[in-house]
Design a protein around this nucleic acid. Structure first.
Length: 438
RNA sequence: CGGGGCGUGGCGCAGUCUGGUAGCGCACCUGCUUUGGGAGCAGGAUGUCGGAGGUUCAAAUCCUCUCGCCCCGACCA
């Protein structure tokens, strides 16, 4: 993509309403535009990141055996009456009426919807287990939306729902999602710590929140300081094997949100306990038969009896992750994207748009990169070098290739690593190999 | 939902107290000169001052109502 043709409305100054760094940088880098409180349009650069995050989430869900569906954003109120949540959910649920005066709502979550689908389609224990997920926009009418996409009213969420015959099966489903989440966040270069958490209005007993430690995080958390030194999960997983040892390994060190943390019962000595703030990027719940029972989602057993389904639900805040990734990856000059989610892999800068030799060299390089399947953003604008460097640093592509008169004369170009700031003058082929390395 | 703040060109702001018909920086357009970390000069364009009502010869400015946004707290993927 040529930057001269790209829709990238950059802001040089910080918008007054943006208080935290990810919100500021997303606005300045032209990723999003606010529509109303907590509701955003995603512009080309932001959407590319959102789609890449979404795709990693999707791949890891699929790998774990979950199957993707797509449920509607608008749901009928009667489903929520069946579970009893229509009255419980309160003002956070956006309620609407259609032209026939039927009560509808914009879904804040989909337990009822998916339970209805499964109870109609699954009648026998032989059809279990199942895990269905979708990646869909949600709406929760927050009293006070803030922090850009980190706490929007409208947000993109991956929510998965598991259905099992018994508790043991449900725990295995829980473990699968637990491990899939470790892998998902690890692929984005995020250290997300699984912490014991409250179950909230979704209900149930067993729950973990996946928390990325960050000073700007909204959640207060406590964890064993051993977590700070732990590496992220880097291994493949055999999902059909017994995952209990892996679950045990990743819950070995204490970690809990402040809601469930009880100093009197905490197993960690005070000197080894970290009290920090964090961003919740995912949460897993097991809630048994809370929805299957009132909604009549049952299966027949071998002996002819019926049992309600054991259920769990598993959310990842996809749009929130984009903000969380920036909170975890930035410096004074702008964003520093991990390669796995970067909107482009490399920014190609021609610092002399008026110099025919530089233009020819940069154009040729651009063609080469595209032919090689490299996602490249080519700054071919007629701007000063400083402006181009500042732009590229702001939008945070992992690599910068800089074409200038010095290099063109010497047959080299400059390779800059955005994260380390390291620069090297290399011949073209060597430069292309350099950015291909991880 | 309690408390506070702010709405003036795309962005950041001044002007409001003390009423006289809107200004600055950045961005934008044209031209020339520039070019390795957000260039310079000259010229130019862009505003129902959030909205409605009122007071007044005259309202961004005073009064009333209203809408929106942000911050702190209580609540949440």
């Amino acid at each position: 993509m040529r930057l001269s043709q790209y829709f990238l409305p950059l802001l040089r100054e910080n918008p007054a309403e943006a208080q935290i760094v990810s919100h500021r940088l997303m606005l300045r880098a032209g990723m999003i535009r606010q529509s109303s409180a907590g509701i955003y349009s995603w512009l080309p650069l932001g959407l590319r990141v959102l789609k890449r995050v979404e795709q990693i989430v999707r791949e890891e869900q699929d790998r774990s055996g979950a199957q993707e569906i797509l449920m509607p954003t608008i749901q009928p109120a009667e489903l929520w009456r069946e579970s009893g949540r229509y009255d419980d959910y309160g003002k956070e649920m956006l309620r609407i009426r259609d032209r026939h005066d039927r009560e509808m709502l914009y879904g804040p979550t989909n337990e009822e919807q998916v339970t209805e689908i499964v109870r109609a389609a699954i009648q026998s224990y032989r059809d279990l287990p199942k895990n269905l997920y979708h990646i869909q926009w949600k709406f929760r009418d927050e009293v006070r939306p803030r922090f850009g996409v980190m706490r929007g009213r409208e947000f993109l969420m991956k929510d998965a729902y598991s259905f099992d015959l018994d508790m043991a099966g449900a725990k295995h489903s829980y473990n699968k999602m637990f491990v899939a989440y470790l892998r998902t966040f690890a692929r984005m270069g995020l250290k997300a710590i699984p912490m014991r958490a409250e179950t909230g209005p979704i209900g149930g007993e067993l729950s973990h929140e996946f928390i990325v430690l960050a000073e700007t995080g909204e959640s207060g958390v406590f964890c064993d300081k051993a977590w700070l030194a732990r590496d992220i999960l880097g291994q493949d997983v055999e999902y059909d094997s017994d995952l209990e040892p892996m679950y045990a390994e990743w819950t070995r060190h204490y970690a809990a949100t402040e809601d469930v943390h009880d100093p009197a019962k905490c197993p960690v000595a005070e000197a080894d306990l970290v009290n920090a703030r964090g961003i919740e990027v995912g949460q897993v719940f097991n809630f048994g038969t809370k929805y299957s029972k009132p909604m009549g989602a049952v299966v027949s057993l071998a002996d002819g009896g019926n049992v309600p389904l054991e259920m769990g639900s598993y959310g990842i805040g996809v749009s929130r992750l984009v903000g969380a990734l920036i909170e975890a990856n930035h410096d004074d000059n702008g964003i520093i994207w991990p390669a796995s989610v970067a909107p482009f892999h490399v920014g190609l800068i021609n610092i002399r748009a008026a110099d025919a030799k530089c233009v020819a060299a940069a154009d040729e390089l651009y063609g080469k990169l595209r032919a090689g399947g490299v996602m490249v953003l080519y700054d071919d604008r007629d701007e000063s070098p400083g402006a181009k460097f500042a732009t590229m640093d702001l939008i945070g592509l992992p690599w910068q290739l800089i074409v200038g008169p010095r290099g063109v004369a010497a047959g080299t170009l400059e390779v800059k690593n955005r994260r380390t700031g390291e620069r090297q003058d290399l011949p073209v082929e060597a430069a292309l190999n350099r950015i291909a390395a991880p």
